[in-house]
Nucleic acid binder design. Structure first.
Ligand SMILES: [Mn+2]
Ligand SMILES: [Mn+2]
Ligand SMILES: [Mn+2]
Ligand SMILES: [Mn+2]
Lengths: 220, 220
DNA sequence: ATAAAATTTTAGACTAGCCTAAATTTTATT
DNA sequence: AATAAAATTTAGGCTAGTCTAAAATTTTAT
């Protein structure tokens, strides 16, 4: 049985909200993420449970079954591969590709995904630094840290973003911060936690806590 | 107001069945092409007429309005560009791409289409020899002839196919006939109209009337 | 421990797109 | 021109996915 566009979106969102520990996801959280009402979510959860894609007990929240996890990861793989295509091959900015990938991720051909993957040279990460699951469905989340966890004086490498909103990504573009940038944390203002950082040994700039909280980095 | 997947398919099919003279298309013909029942077609026609995309008078058949024609041509442009991508970039065979393009053609971003077009080098024809409408919506059908209209002794160039079925395209592959092949018509059997043709000045082979009727060619 | 608040589910209803069966209109045949 | 056949539309109904309002359950606060 094929899964609908809508079902795939639910599974993907449950995967994302569930986090790496596979925690239960609430009806309200899903209503928020799907931009629907809680009542609609309940309807869909019953259907997904019926199909064996989620573990669902009334009032208890949901988790993905193994089968549901597999479906979710396939969709994520497609989403991220298409994003690489859009940025690397078509020349889109990293702030422009999410909505388009949101549609492309539901194109059903398995062989299409594999050929696309080959065409792109089997990329490991998407334009936002998110890891791309392999063809077998293995998804390993690298354990980056958030910039707020970095000590003053440390030099780290920018590896990804937590917020994928175009406005945030454009803000980073204007600041000259891209994937791979070396960020040296110069100082942190005690009052509002805004920080002064040096990018690639060059320009020093101030970033707000809001920005720091959304930057994933790696010690070198 | 955005058009749905289903509405786009109706418009594309009406365009195709309407032919270059913009003839009226019957409810039954649409039911056949959409693999639905006539009653369902009627429902959809009322909706499309409501939206100003078709000219519809009960019992009279339909034609596209200017607006409907524009939408249809956009979908056709997307379909054919994606087919070029699948064949030229991903390495699919021309017999494998139709169903995938049938999905991709409904991805809505205008800018995506234009970037894809640029990436592909503004191709004029798709892998089946069908012309690709330009960004402004101009679609010029080249006037090829069908191989059955060719005289014995003539040398023509293979430019397209009328039947897009994978089985037919695979048959052509096995026969060594591809877009651009030079076909010399050696003889036509009076009894069943099967023909003997020489491909690219090399191998001579027999083709049935069924094949001849579906080959578009051009005098040189 | 109970009451209030928050969350979740149920009930009932809507739209898009489809169906079958019956009625209507058009077209073809006598 | 009248009738038979074919094509088309209407009537009524179904499912997926959504909604609002009301009921049920769980959680939080007193
Ligand atoms: Mn994305
Ligand atoms: Mn991404
Ligand atoms: Mn096609
Ligand atoms: Mn084609």
């Amino acid at each position: 049985m094929q899964n609908s566009f809508t079902e795939e979106n639910y599974l993907k969102i449950i995967h994302s909200l569930s986090g790496r520990d596979g925690a239960e996801v609430s009806t309200n959280a899903l209503a928020e993420s799907t931009a629907t009402r809680a009542a609609s979510v309940t309807d869909m959860l019953r259907k997904l449970a019926e199909k064996g894609l989620i573990n669902y007990k009334k009032y208890q929240g949901v988790t993905l079954t193994e089968q549901g996890e597999k479906v979710a990861i396939k969709v994520i793989r497609k989403h991220r591969l298409w994003e690489v295509f859009l940025v690397e091959k078509l020349g889109f900015g990293w702030d422009e590709v999410h909505d388009i990938a949101e549609e492309l991720e539901h194109i059903p051909s398995e062989i299409l995904v594999e050929k696309l993957d080959t065409f792109l040279g089997h990329p490991r990460f998407d334009p936002h630094g998110d890891p791309i699951p392999d063809a077998k469905g293995n998804l390993t989340e690298p354990d980056y840290l958030v910039l707020t966890d970095v000590q003053i004086g440390e030099k780290v490498r920018m590896m990804g973003v937590l917020d994928h909103a175009p406005s945030f990504l454009q803000h980073l573009d204007r600041s000259g911060i891209t994937l791979g940038s070396v960020i040296e944390l110069k100082e942190v203002n005690d009052y509002d936690k805004s920080a002064s950082v040096q990018i690639n040994g060059g320009q020093t700039l101030f970033i707000s806590l809001e920005v720091s909280k959304n930057l994933l980095v790696q010690r070198r």
